[in-house]
Amino acid sequence: MMILGKLLLGVIGLALATFIGGFISGLDRKITARMQSRFGPPLAQPFYDVLKLWGKAPMAVNAWLVLCAYLTLMASALSVFLFFAQSDLLLIFFVMTIGAVFQVMGALSVNSPFSHVGAQRELLQMFTYEPLIILVIIGIAMHTGSFSIASIYALDTPLLYSMPFLYVALGIAFTIKLRKSPFDISASHHGHQEIVRGVLTEYTGRQLAMLEVAHWLDVVLLLGLCSLFWSTSAIGLFLLLAVTYFAELFVDNVSARLTWGWMIKRALGPGVALAMVNLLWLYAIK
């Protein structure tokens, strides 16, 4: 009964996450436009985009690309499903990573130099954000004594009180995962980049639609990870997520795109340092 309930929760969560992810993407565009004094597209524009992409004539370069797009979407969906089914954090993380890896694999399976450079940069981005997320998960485990999400909901004080620096580190990882400035290195939202759309250059039509949906799910998953930091009240959780996302948009709008060299030096280094300080602190108060 317990397992069935969890499965049901996961399925409902996944269905909701797809919609919420799309609307977050729409809201993102709306607020970004507002910051630039524009009107921006309608709120449901991401859905229109995906539907339009879905209706395009199939033009995949090779079979690998199609397979990788499916696997990326499945991995992202599975990780969101596992999150809502309140599974193990480490398992969720690994499944999420598989999605990202397959996206890169697809980009490497074609001959386009843009796609290749984008894929290499995507790998470097993964190299930057994954340690940060792992450290956050380790921090959670140190605090609660378990990798399970259910154990976080059993807490009576928000995690943020004891892990503020780890939250900042998670924020850095979130910016990279959102593909926002200054970290829109491997592929930016709008293709105005030296490598066009980087890792996404060769995906078209349905494959691109799938990757877009996978991106929404990834965003929801990371927002879910952020929400764990204020698990005690719904209002606090919502406020924390709103402030976090607004901060992301703000940073996106006040900074230029930087290079991967800078990212590794100035994002990975300080991120890991912040996380370590927080872990030591957690160790000390134990």
């Binding site: 910051m35 703000f250 900074s255």
Partner: peptide, 9 residues
């Protein structure tokens, strides 16, 4: 750029 952005908002 922050000030300009807040102004725009």
């Amino acid at each position: 750029m922050g000030r300009t952005i807040i102004k725009n908002l």
